[in-house]
Design a binder for these strands. Sequence first.
DNA 1: TATGAATGAGACTTCATTCAT
DNA 2: GATGAATGAAGTCTCATTCAT
Lengths: 210, 210, 210, 210
Amino acid sequence: MTLVEPEDRPRRRPSQARSRRRYEAILEAAATLFAESGFDGVTTEAIAAAAGTSIGSLYQFFPGKKAIFVTLAERLMERENALFEEVVAEAQGRPWDELVEAVVDAFAHLQDTEPAWRAVWSSHLALVGEVAETGERYQRRIVERTAAILGGYAPALSEERRETVATTLVETVAAMLFAGLRYERPRSRALLAETKRMIRLYTADVLAQG
Amino acid sequence: MTLVEPEDRPRRRPSQARSRRRYEAILEAAATLFAESGFDGVTTEAIAAAAGTSIGSLYQFFPGKKAIFVTLAERLMERENALFEEVVAEAQGRPWDELVEAVVDAFAHLQDTEPAWRAVWSSHLALVGEVAETGERYQRRIVERTAAILGGYAPALSEERRETVATTLVETVAAMLFAGLRYERPRSRALLAETKRMIRLYTADVLAQG
Amino acid sequence: MTLVEPEDRPRRRPSQARSRRRYEAILEAAATLFAESGFDGVTTEAIAAAAGTSIGSLYQFFPGKKAIFVTLAERLMERENALFEEVVAEAQGRPWDELVEAVVDAFAHLQDTEPAWRAVWSSHLALVGEVAETGERYQRRIVERTAAILGGYAPALSEERRETVATTLVETVAAMLFAGLRYERPRSRALLAETKRMIRLYTADVLAQG
Amino acid sequence: MTLVEPEDRPRRRPSQARSRRRYEAILEAAATLFAESGFDGVTTEAIAAAAGTSIGSLYQFFPGKKAIFVTLAERLMERENALFEEVVAEAQGRPWDELVEAVVDAFAHLQDTEPAWRAVWSSHLALVGEVAETGERYQRRIVERTAAILGGYAPALSEERRETVATTLVETVAAMLFAGLRYERPRSRALLAETKRMIRLYTADVLAQG
DNA sequence: TATGAATGAGACTTCATTCAT
DNA sequence: GATGAATGAAGTCTCATTCAT
């Protein structure tokens, strides 16, 4: 189970208010449960119960468990993408360091508020099955955009170098945000602060040396 | 399934040559299969088959599937610990940067050669189920040792800072090694090189500023 | 599910034009689908969809899936009965052979034009579940009528023989018509032709010998 | 579900005595249940229970419900084929009528003693799903053999006529044997006797006229 | 009355684990 | 000790039927 097949798409995107609520409840319950126990540790029955609905309704909206996960993943990735562009647009013209910091903070905030974050990134980073593809696709896009933006600050850098640097930055932030999940509050913030410092230094060096 | 219970220990550490071989074959087969498909994606039957033995024999050595995983994990962690101490001992007296580089290279090499690496770290980092506890315990030890060694190079650093820095270093290396698994060869090496550069810069700054 | 219970009757025989149309559409759609995929292979949802209505409406007319089938069956059987009497009335006074041939042809034509035929007879002949009872009842009536008519042509035959012969004729025609469904057009007609020849010879012998 | 796929073959043809018994018990229980309630009316759980074993064991031998049915069907068809050849060989040189009678009697006896008979023929004749293919294949073989043997008795008949006649004979016997299942003992025998008489007359006519 | 979303019993199947040989 | 057949709990999913709108 690695590719996203058509059968992994929702069955029916509900439009009426009550259905819509149900649909969202299922996704929300699933996000929480997946985050707690991982994909295989969660049963469709448990998702339905946590969403306060019946197994039958769940299957009316989604053709299967994987489809729920994929929907969650694509939604999150879409949001991450939008968030990235939004922050970048806002930070227009500001120095590189500030731009990076703004992006990292935005993502950290998303991580804090979005239950799906943990479930999806866990799967993505751990490469275990689901969303390998989806996650990779979205991450690739952010790497490319980062490389492009970096080009504006470091025109001397070869395209290849830019991509390597962008990949490193994105992977580092993602990995460290994820690692932060394993720590309680004061420590996780400290880890994030150190991460920012680390990439600031790295970036400065790259801009100076290539 | 998160804590390591007594029932997750091997049943009997076989001493006779033939049994020993069987035991090792099971662990080796399991490492490969877990790395490929994750804990839930592997059946005990498949492990036994890949080890060239029977499901009955497998259960003679291990009380269950989780015990196989836990054994693999503890073994790997033990080796990582030993490796760490070994490299540190060898690098005695050398500058901090060289020490760090030697440790990172040693771990990178371990990652390349040990099939269990991916399975165990995936579980550990993704926090999904198994070995959360075991992994955390071992990682903690390495962080503490790193902090202690760092103390030798930066006596001015407060104990708390030392721990934060050590944590950051260890998490970064672990996370980036793991991230490297998602890339093919030339890129994964580049990512590792950038990671080393990044932590070298970070470390230098810490040593200079605190 | 073998007996026809009161709950297998339609809920209400609609009289208003629009309802009537809906009711018929459901029966027609069901006939086609049952013929294609058998009773268990068809979902109520599919019937409603094929009838261009909703599942809710379907249950307004019929108390359940079986009731649709039973209605179809009784309707078909009724028509067969009427057809039989009609043909017999028309053939009044003609020789036995011509009478038989006329009946067989009429039934063959019904089979060709009525989608329910296949579904209902399949169930009846195969004795699997539905309409065993209904079918048997109607078939019995036709056997009795055949025996009675035969009495006019062969007064010497004992009542018991007459019944045996009538049963044989009816079963043969039904079974061979049904068998014909498994063949494509030219062959199925040939099979029917041979069947007619066979029963003609059989009948002639019975009339001659008893 | 119409074609016989590789996944419809048994999983493991057991060799040890105990397994063999279990395997047979499953098939026997399935034959009885399928005959009573049809393919869809039977659950794998019910088969396992009737066979005095567990659902797990059932799935160890067969990959699914259909595979049980297919195994039953192929086995029966194989037996029918063998029986046919056996009877034909024995009747070597005897008149056509005796040959036909011997074959019909043999099949009638098989029908009486083999619980799978009803289940398999019901499915085959009713064309509902399963074994359509398997049944057709075997029946075709018997038709061809019948046509060939008929050729020895009626060399003047064109090949096409021979096939039509053979098809008619085989279909009639099969259909009437099956129809007989719907009658209690004395009547079912009478029906069979009449069927024999009918095909004797038919055959005599064919041999005389072509 | 018409609609179709909601329900949940129950079907099929897998697989970790036990146990007789 | 080794084997692999046997077990059955538990998971995924379907579909007949109900019911709120």
